[in-house]
Amino acid sequence: MNLYKLGKLVCSLVFFPLYRIKVVGKENIPKDGPVIICSNHISNFDPPVVGITNSRNIYFLAKEELFNNRFLEKLLKSVHAFPIKRGMRDRNALRKGLEILKQNHALGLFPEGSRQKNGEVGKGLAGAGFFALRSNAEIVPCAIIGPYQKFKPLKVAYGKPIDMSAYREQKASAQVVTDRIMEEIRQLHEFHCKKA
Rank of each mutant, 00 (worst) to 15 (best):
I139C: 11
L101K: 01
Y4R: 03
E184H: 01
Q187H: 09
K155D: 11
S12V: 11
N69Y: 08
N40A: 14
P153F: 00
I144A: 05
P161K: 08
G124L: 02
S78R: 07
G7P: 07
Y4K: 02
K195I: 12
F60Q: 02
I37K: 02
V176H: 09
P48Q: 10
K152C: 07
D90Y: 15
I139M: 14
C38P: 04
K102R: 15
Q116D: 13
G87Q: 07
N118M: 06
L76P: 07
H192Q: 13
S135W: 01
R95V: 10
R86S: 07
S43G: 03
A196K: 14
C11Y: 05
K8T: 15
P153L: 08
P141Y: 06
F67K: 00
L188N: 01
K77V: 06
A93I: 00
K123S: 13
I21Y: 10
G7V: 08
S114G: 12
N28M: 04
D32R: 07
K85N: 15
G7Y: 09
I29K: 03
N2V: 11
F16P: 03
K5R: 15
E190Q: 15
V24E: 05
Y19A: 02
N40G: 13
K85W: 12
L3V: 12
L94D: 10
G97Q: 02
P153N: 11
S43K: 00
S135K: 02
H41N: 12
G129I: 05
M1S: 14
V24I: 12
I52V: 12
S39H: 12
V176N: 06
G108W: 02
L18F: 15
R95N: 10
G33D: 03
V79D: 01
E169D: 14
C11V: 08
L125I: 13
N2G: 13
Y148M: 06
D179C: 08
F131L: 13
N118A: 10
L109H: 02
K171P: 00
S78L: 07
L154F: 11
E190I: 12
V23A: 10
F67M: 03
